[in-house]
Design a protein around this nucleic acid. Sequence first.
RNA 1: CGGGGCGUAGCGCAGACUGGUAGCGCGCUUGCUUGGGGUGCAAGAGGUCGGGGGUUCAAAUCCCCCCGCCCCGACCA
Length: 511
Amino acid sequence: MAKNIKSRAEDYAQWYLDVIKAAQLADYAPVRGCMVIRPEGFALWEAIQRDLDRRFKDTGHVNAYFPLLIPLNFLAKEAQHVEGFAMECAVVTHHRLENDGKSGLAPVGKLEEPFVIRPTSETVIGHMYAQWIQSYRDLPVLINQWCNVMRWELRTRLFLRTTEFLWQEGHTAHETAQEAQEETLRMLDVYAAFAEEFLALPVVKGPKTESEKFPGAITTYGIEAMMQDGKALQAGTSHNLGQNFAKAFDIKFLGRDQKQQHVWTTSWGVSTRLIGALIMAHSDDDGLVLPPRVAPVVMAIVPIFKSDADRAKVAAFIDVAIRTLVGEEEFAAAAKRQQSEVVSYFFDRATEQKIVVDWRDNRPGDKQFHWEQRGVPFRMEVGPRDVDAGSVVIKRRFDRAKESVETSKLTPGHLRTELADVQRLMFQKAIEHRQANTHRVDSYDALRATLAEKGGFVRCYFHPDRQAEAKIKEETKATVRVMPFDAQGQTGKCMYTGKDGAPEVIFAVAY
RNA sequence: CGGGGCGUAGCGCAGACUGGUAGCGCGCUUGCUUGGGGUGCAAGAGGUCGGGGGUUCAAAUCCCCCCGCCCCGACCA
């Protein structure tokens, strides 16, 4: 169908890249491994930010900003942390450029101590917390920041793994171990609810194994999602850092018992990788498919006309429809706004979601493909025949369903209901896909066979063990993605060692 | 960092083996035509062939060096 997009069956990796390109979500930057997030893509990030930020505020957090550059020695203060990140840090070593005499520029002014471009901010934030926190009265500290980070990845993929990416990182400090643990799980729940309600992305919650946890954490919890090819994608993590960073940065407070003690900290984050998850979970061979709550444009209207008379007739009809859908105030505001041939109206000012009317002088078919590839949930065609009949055909992106709607029923309420329906159906479809691709095994042979033949999530009882996991990864490419909470603490015979009392885990090949 | 591929018009590509001064499709401009899922015709504009060096009367093409990107692998909250 879409001639600029390879099918998923033909080449899944290429399909993913083609969808991004066709929808103009991102482009390659002139710097290796870096991407330019184009307006269509950035709108998705803004939607994610808007919804998540509200959830953070609802749980008592506030935003702040910490610097991009981190003194080199900060990173070295926590042993596991430095070990985990040292290999992928970009380092700033100079602070000036000079003409090199050959029509180029050369760095000069070597720094006494180099800076690291933040791969994450535990260390600078720890440094600041040590100064801000004096007493139990200063706790808890519940700060989040939205920013960019840089990790010098060897192998990159648009959105999923780029050298620079955007994310949010929450950093909290608490009086007790229990409070820190509660916060870690609270934010895991926030992520899970967000993923399922907003992105229509079903996730499995639970702790990671020792070998998969964040460098410097006591325990890392994750939400794990399944992509359409059956591979797993870690969509968010929440870490209980215990007193590791408190000790490394000497974050102490005078407790209620009048004794000095270290705080208990947590950190949690999600990144622009979520956009990759969104694409790979929902899109199809025709291009992007967006869950309605994320979609910057909820409906695209394609006028159809030949003569000027028809155009006027269709335009009058569309004007009436738009006034009903967005209200008189917004209709008037749109007339004063700078507009291209694609005219935008805000359907929902709070979420900045729009309805557009595509007046470009293209073929109707062109316009259908255009909005289809961009994942717009609904498309409405309006031609002279519709005007005469007093009804329009609305096409639903996610399942290509068509619905004939009488003009009188074209209300904001109707559209909202339809959008909510699609949101629900997309989540449902994703859950069904995950169920159909989740398997259960009780032996290592069965695990290998299942991963090789079927892929997807494979549940089994397994005693996490660094060496065993490395061996299994080598032989199957799969790792323990998560020890699911939904197994409800049941244990069984380890499929690898045969020992009793093993927890349930999910093995999968991951992105 | 290893293996593979690529770099030629805004985009996608051919031309290279066998050297002769650059072409196709899409897009763009103009006109007519058409218009309910990627109309048709005609006329146009547009290129330091990634960079540097070498061989040659002559290099997109052959040789050497460099740069960059993509894919696969190793690695990776």
